[in-house]
Design a protein around this nucleic acid. Structure first.
Lengths: 221, 221
DNA sequence: GCAAAAGTGTTTGAGGTACACCCATGC
DNA sequence: GCATGGGTGTACCTCAAACACTTTTGC
């Protein structure tokens, strides 16, 4: 028992909400817990912060270790500190939001012998701890960002069609948008550019492909 | 040395940014540190979270203990966890934002033998730890809330004039606003009501006094 | 009567919303 | 040639911004 303090210290963890768009649905990455508490149950990926590790770095590492996913953007969401949120000991958890394009999840949970899976946000299992609460707040935040007219470019792959981008917005906002107004707005924003390529699929006119003009850093403080 | 853990635990603290409007200026409440580190320097009020205490409750208690101020609203701002932000040990700090009407600060720092003072945000001393960073983020957040057209009603006293409310907005946003547009907008929002009283001051027409219609809870999660 | 802040409407421009048809492709 | 989604323009309406004069008071 080597670590001793004059007064009690809580444990500090991070939990990561990975959102992606897959199969025309907004999905979250969850892991199955192996040990107690909530053994066998589903939970957000996460874990304890190393004593010399920044919070963001801990989030990045834990996500990587538990799911094999390397997050591009990690945005701090909220810190959850209810005294009884973990039955083992006092655990304060800093939650992070990580929008990841589906194509970065593909070779996916082939990592740490942990079962990881995408779940549609409209068909979630029971979650361990207060993770349902964390997820609810994460969805809210995602929506709020869109309402500030920030496009969910972090969720898009290397190239995408305007219809795909529109679907992403619709899934997050939970409404349907007008195609012409959407195209107009996106072009005025001037944040994406045509790649010149086209995407052929099905028996209809091919769609132009676009890419993000300059990926911006959503830095953490 | 009674508190032992299998692996190292960081300390968890809260810091509170109390904003108020006083003397036609946006001010922050700071305390003078008595012990090391940064002894004699100015810092945000704050302290360590009790092992069975929620984060918000800790923020409320510490603010009360150190400055005598009972915060009405405490909104979680951000969690700061840089490994070297405290020279003593690893300290993760959850920062809170507390807008307080000036009239609740009056009998003020007559509490814990600690020196506490309001500083204008445009004339700040050097701050201990990373508190300057926390304060910068707090001002930004305050501004963002106003831009989402949320009036800073938490900063107003029990009754106030429309001009006072407008000055508060102007101080936070750092711009001057048009009086007629402001009056119109506020009345459309329908969140304040005339008390029927008037405020006489100086050799000019008296101003109508208003009060908040229903104080809303900005609850923490 | 004069200084000083309170109060009060209208016009204009920008941006958002509603809405329908032709185009390119695969079968 | 037909079914399928891709792409495009205009009219209207709502909201935000600009802007100046009268009112009430203390001295």
């Amino acid at each position: 028992m080597p670590y001793r303090y004059d007064y009690p210290h809580p444990a500090v963890a991070v939990d990561i909400v990975v959102f992606t768009i897959d199969d025309a649905d907004l999905k979250v990455l969850l892991i199955r817990r192996r040990g107690p508490p909530f053994a066998g149950g589903w939970a957000l990926p996460g874990g304890f912060v190393g004593i010399d590790e920044s919070l963001k770095r801990a989030a990045w590492r834990e996500l990587r270790e538990e799911t094999g996913v390397s997050a591009g953007i990690l945005e701090q969401l909220h810190t959850f500190g209810h005294p009884q949120r973990d039955p083992r000991e006092r655990v304060i958890s800093v939650a992070y939001l990580a929008p990841v394009p589906a194509d970065r999840l593909r070779p996916e949970p082939a990592s740490d012998a942990r079962e990881a899976r995408l779940f549609s946000v409209s068909d979630l299992p029971l979650l361990a701890f207060d993770h349902a609460k964390i997820l609810r707040l994460a969805r809210e935040r995602l929506r709020q960002k869109l309402e500030k007219s920030v496009l969910p470019l972090e969720l898009m792959g290397a190239s995408f069609t305007l219809t795909e981008l529109q679907r992403a917005c619709e899934l997050i906002l939970g409404v349907t948008l007008d195609k012409r107004n959407f195209h107009k707005k996106v072009h005025i924003m001037d944040v994406i550019e045509a790649t010149g390529e086209e995407w052929r699929e099905g028996q209809h006119r091919p769609a132009k492909l676009y890419r993000v003009k300059s990926r911006r850093d959503l830095t953490d403080r």
